[in-house]
Design a protein around this nucleic acid. Structure first.
Lengths: 234, 234
DNA sequence: CGCATCATTGAAGCCCTTCAAGACTTGTGG
DNA sequence: CCACAAGTCTTGAAGGGCTTCAATGATGCG
């Protein structure tokens, strides 16, 4: 049913009963417009938010107005399980495309995880995969030159689309958003994408970003998708 | 007793019974020499490792031999709770100073978390704080110029020393290690530290790094320590 | 079919890197 | 207590990757 169930269940082998328990705590869905904020920075929501459709990002606003995106969220992702565990979020979530979201009340999560340790384990595991991705991004931003860095970002997003069975879909992220996520300037993103096109790795047309040679892209990025822990999903 | 208990207990208000359960699963401690590896990248340990004394770091080795440090660990930290939740670690842990460590068997963690949901919650919470720190580092590396970036790193490490009641202690991290953690070159770390000294923020002597004006350092770093979720500890 | 969004381009320059050598510090053994 | 080695810090010079600014061109939606 819910894509998040499929995702969570891949890890911990949830029983039917556990799956049912999880299904019943998902609240009524809601539409969010492109560009709208889903969760405000510094807020203490009483529910976590499940993304059912669309593309969202988690980001922080810096003191000088700069934006930094540190996660892209696809359907099935719980955008702020953190607010359950830590009560407060230290980031914001916004819709990059029109989204459908649904709330999961913290009280319900508490009850269900108390009753079924396996559910707690599976949610914990899901949030640890988030951590793996953060670390990989840290490496990416801290160490790799622009060409590899952007290649890596494209590889990851493609892998994540594949993991939710949207193989046909292209990465639809603007150059400005890519810049905010990689810590590069939009201008340099543009020039580097052109370089990838000239290498025959990306299609000439700039939108959507179309990967012609995933093998070469992975090689440039030194991409090893194991950190996504999504092997089971493909 | 164990410093990790004090740390965990600050969050979730563990009962005496729960604290006792946690205490009993800590295995016999072991000494690790400076520079020695504590956990190997890619390994699947059957226990997680608790740091009881010393300074360790988590890091990844890049394809070209570059090192990237993405976390410093102090006493009380569980270096790889991830291996419990995800079975495999995708990083290595090494001792930067002589360390004392103790194992916590995964089987015991599984038993105890199953029996006491509150313990699961508290461990989960601890690993989420890790995530908060990763995100902050991501921001730091991705966006801030060298001066702010290094200032931020110094602020964080000082705050963490204070959180474990080692106020008197100075940050004892070499310039090369700082470089590996901030994604800057060792040469530039050196020049930027000199700049901080000339500003009167750090003491003239280079070792140990001595902060004379924490207020100015925080201001340059735009440091807001709330993401450490250690307020209760100070 | 007009307007907003997104992508592209050129020029100038700075922040940071790399390389390579030398000075200082610290700990260890004689 | 001194000598030596290893580790750490410092310095200079040259250069490159990326940024900023500012303007123009393309795209696509209502």
């Amino acid at each position: 049913m819910h894509s998040f169930l499929r995702k969570l269940n891949n890890f911990g082998a949830l029983s039917d009963e556990e799956q049912h328990a999880l299904q019943t705590i998902v609240g009524p869905s809601k539409q969010i417009k492109r560009g709208e904020e889903i969760i405000a920075d510094g807020s203490s929501p009483t529910h976590s938010t499940l993304l059912l459709r669309g593309l969202a990002c988690r980001y922080k606003m810096l003191e000088d107005g700069q934006l930094h995106i540190f996660a892209f969220q696809y359907r099935g992702d719980i955008c702020d399980i953190q607010s359950f565990v830590l009560n407060e979020v230290d980031y914001a979530v916004a819709a990059l495309h029109p989204c459908t979201v649904a709330p999961i009340a913290h009280d319900d999560v508490k009850r269900v995880t108390g009753q079924y340790p396996n559910i707690a384990r599976v949610l914990w595991r899901d949030s640890m995969i988030d951590s793996c991705i953060f670390r990989e991004w840290l490496l990416n931003v801290g160490r790799r030159p622009a060409l590899s860095r952007i290649a890596h970002m494209l590889c990851e997003q493609t892998a994540r689309l594949e993991a939710i069975n949207e193989n046909g879909s292209h990465v639809v992220i603007t150059q400005a958003e890519l810049a905010d996520a990689t810590g590069l300037s939009a201008v340099h993103i543009n020039r580097t994408l052109q370089e990838l096109r000239e290498l025959g790795i990306l299609a000439k047309r700039s939108r959507p970003v179309t990967i012609l040679r995933p093998d070469k892209l992975s090689a440039i990025a030194h991409f090893d998708g194991r950190y996504l822990h999504a092997a089971e999903l493909i």
